[in-house]
């Protein structure tokens, strides 16, 4: 009825001799211990499941989600169309078209006529945020991954600005 204790096989032993070499009593005892453990899990309240459509996880600080553009104190787009973000982008997903700034905008020469981010190409690395000299672009904590067409995932300047308005100061911190 079993050898009564478990022993590691030595080199000379065949495969046959290292089957569960425990006594049936030990097998029962260990099974009972395992059953007691799972029963404790069974009656414990709470689970790690998040009921997604109704609940969602709030992103941790430093999470890099979709981008947004910021406005300055006068409500104008902060971006000066310097192309630093586009140059820093490893995925080449930022398209900027610069236009001459209106004469009353004395603090800059250019502004973005067109500013598009293709979120399907984006790898969410946050390099654009780090590269920006005027702190105009940032990554937020939201992660809307659902879209019904590819076009929807190309965010233009105005959409990015609106997103920025909605996020307010919830700006991710890129380490």
């Amino acid at each position: 009825m079993g050898s009564g204790k478990y022993s590691m096989p030595s080199d000379g032993e065949t495969r046959d001799s290292r089957w569960i070499a425990v006594s049936p009593v030990a097998l029962l005892v260990e099974s009972a211990k395992a059953l007691a453990h799972t029963f404790r899990r069974l009656v414990r309240r709470g689970s790690f499941t998040v009921q997604y459509p109704e609940e969602s996880l709030s992103p941790k600080k430093g999470y890099r989600g979709e981008h947004f553009l910021k406005r300055d104190s006068k409500g104008r787009v902060k971006c000066v169309a310097c192309f630093m973000c586009a140059a820093a982008c490893p995925a080449k997903c930022i398209t900027i078209e610069a236009g001459k700034a209106p004469p009353e905008w004395t603090d800059r020469e250019k502004y973005p006529v067109r500013f598009e981010i293709d979120l399907l190409r984006c790898i969410y690395c946050g390099m654009c945020e780090e590269a920006c000299p005027v702190d105009a672009i940032a990554l937020s904590g939201t992660f809307p991954i659902v879209a019904e067409s590819r076009k929807e995932k190309v965010y233009d300047r105005d959409k990015l600005l609106v997103l920025g308005d909605n996020f307010g100061d919830k700006i991710s911190v890129v380490p």
Binding site: D16, W19, I20, P24, S31, H37, T38
Partner: peptide, 22 residues
Amino acid sequence: WVRWTLPRFRFDQIMRLGWAVM
């Protein structure tokens, strides 16, 4: 309860358990 607690035996272990122990 047992199903979600104990892992599956290996086949030769089942045979051994059946013939040599039980």
